[in-house]
Design a protein around this nucleic acid. Sequence first.
DNA 1: AATGAATGAGCCTTCATTCAT
DNA 2: AATGAATGAAGGCTCATTCAT
Lengths: 199, 199, 199, 199
Amino acid sequence: MPRIGAEPARRRSLIDAALATIGEHGSLDVSVKEIAGRAGMSPALAFHYFGDKDEIILQTMRHLLREFSSEVTARLRQADSPRQRVEAIIDASFSVSQFDRKTIAAWLVFYLHACSSPPAARLFQVYARRLHSNLVDALRPLVGEESVIAAADTLGALIDGLYVRHALRADGPDAGEARRICMACLDRHLSEHAVGGVQ
Amino acid sequence: MPRIGAEPARRRSLIDAALATIGEHGSLDVSVKEIAGRAGMSPALAFHYFGDKDEIILQTMRHLLREFSSEVTARLRQADSPRQRVEAIIDASFSVSQFDRKTIAAWLVFYLHACSSPPAARLFQVYARRLHSNLVDALRPLVGEESVIAAADTLGALIDGLYVRHALRADGPDAGEARRICMACLDRHLSEHAVGGVQ
Amino acid sequence: MPRIGAEPARRRSLIDAALATIGEHGSLDVSVKEIAGRAGMSPALAFHYFGDKDEIILQTMRHLLREFSSEVTARLRQADSPRQRVEAIIDASFSVSQFDRKTIAAWLVFYLHACSSPPAARLFQVYARRLHSNLVDALRPLVGEESVIAAADTLGALIDGLYVRHALRADGPDAGEARRICMACLDRHLSEHAVGGVQ
Amino acid sequence: MPRIGAEPARRRSLIDAALATIGEHGSLDVSVKEIAGRAGMSPALAFHYFGDKDEIILQTMRHLLREFSSEVTARLRQADSPRQRVEAIIDASFSVSQFDRKTIAAWLVFYLHACSSPPAARLFQVYARRLHSNLVDALRPLVGEESVIAAADTLGALIDGLYVRHALRADGPDAGEARRICMACLDRHLSEHAVGGVQ
DNA sequence: AATGAATGAGCCTTCATTCAT
DNA sequence: AATGAATGAAGGCTCATTCAT
């Protein structure tokens, strides 16, 4: 039964299972038994690989953050203009892999978890700073140094809010609506700046 | 020990304790023992009054929703112009009693809980619909029928996002910043509409 | 609310409720709360009257034994012949008030309870001895001294067995069948004796 | 500590312990802790194997029924004549393994339990029907088709009654007396039939 | 007389975790 | 490599019982 070299695949299965389970439950109050079962193995093996339930959760969180970061990076690489760079970030946020109910629920769970778990908090901070930098860098050429922080904060919070509403509300926006709302918000920032710039 | 007629005070203590506990833990994974202990009574008494852990949670959630609703209502009553009505809603959201880290964490926890608990979901829906109506009604005179939904969705999501960031991020906005960001967003909506109207 | 002189009625209500509850559950594992609720009062009052759950149970048991004893006594008083005396006992056993599923279930519960509760055991012994005497006295003139014990043991056990089967089996005998089976058994005893006596 | 392949032995230990505990208490109101402790393991392990207290009870009941059935079957296989077949059933009932106070108390407890637990009721019905068939088949050649049901009902109820009395009464019959009473009852049935047949 | 308030004890059950195999 | 065996700890909940009122 024991296949050689199966460890990475096993770890990955566990992380996927943990993500799905946490997303469905909408909480970290899920048993290792359920996670392991979903991943097709015994709880004992999960402990063998990760040592700890906390570690399973942390790695799952790290996985989620990384996935989103690569999504952003990949889209940024294909962007040619400042405007496209902003759109890349917005689009990454509402891309299929990220903008799915269970995934977003898991995001929120981790978000909350970071409040009381220092390691989770550290993980988050790194990610949040990088995203913020990306957004700021992309917006600066468009709205100017003096408005860039405000614009980034607004767009960032708006994205977060759309996230939450999509995942948790029956009448929340779908990806298209969410994108449109963000773009419109961005446009208003730009037009304001344009007018101001001209004056 | 047994004082008579203590029920309402006890229930209230328990709800307050539950709110604090849930807010601190950032999850519903808190024991009735802890809640009751914080409220200065034995777990058995908590069960005597609420019957169920679920009921404790549900009533706590209901309490939170009601508190926010009254905050909004009170401020709306004092508003004289459409603009003031929108500001009333924004201000209620960032008022001291609502915009506190533990309270917001509890909000998010309930938000997530509503995904898997039908009674919680029902509670939420009522609240969400009312808030949406309020926002739409307040915005309509300002941005016109054709833009009102977009404006309400944008402002609503923005408020939610600022909430989340305030509660969960070390560098999140404080009440003042949050308010300013919302007002600026509102202003951009208005100016857009004004320009559009003139054309 | 407190009616004067209500105590005896209250006690009686409680005992009736206890009997019904125990009979339905088929066990003593019933809460004082349920019993008191059925009797239309608070558990605290039940404790006030009986002091103890054990005492509630014991008094309920005593009540049941007394009821059966009076049934037997009443019927014995109306019997004119030895044969009628035996029939009186059999008929009392299968009379409406005794031969009802819940009552019999309660009997059995008390029977079992007597195994581990000395006071209950004492109660039972008194009753069992009296019934045995009654049966023996009634049978002696019919089957003679040398067979009377065997006959009493047989009839007694048969009655108990019919009891159990009626209460606990879907296809158990009803009162008529049970009576017929007992009478037939009695008849066989008599005919055996008659033949033996002639020889 | 964890020995491998210990499951069957553990399950058996638990069932034995459950039987003893239930028999002693004369009720199902026994804690899994006590049962597990008696079986030399932690309650958690008991739940690991059986999942449920109900399941522990049900399996214990099934075990008891099976044991009695095999006792009957084994004795029936060695019977050569109709009379011996009836005696086999009677003897099985009063054999050492069955006719022990605690075992009988457990029987009664299960009997009562079947009133309120459908799965327990189903278990019982199967057993009761089989035993009834056995008795009827054994008696038919002896007392004839027209009396066989009455004879089976009488003997069956008598056995049950003797059971109860043996387990629950200080002065109840021992195995020898019980057997003798049954045989005498059987004899009376036969003689009645014989006389009737001759006439 | 009657009851709500209050609790300690105990029960069923789950879970994270360890260990021998 | 992988798992069943095993458990201590903890949690939700019920209950018998007491006490003021």
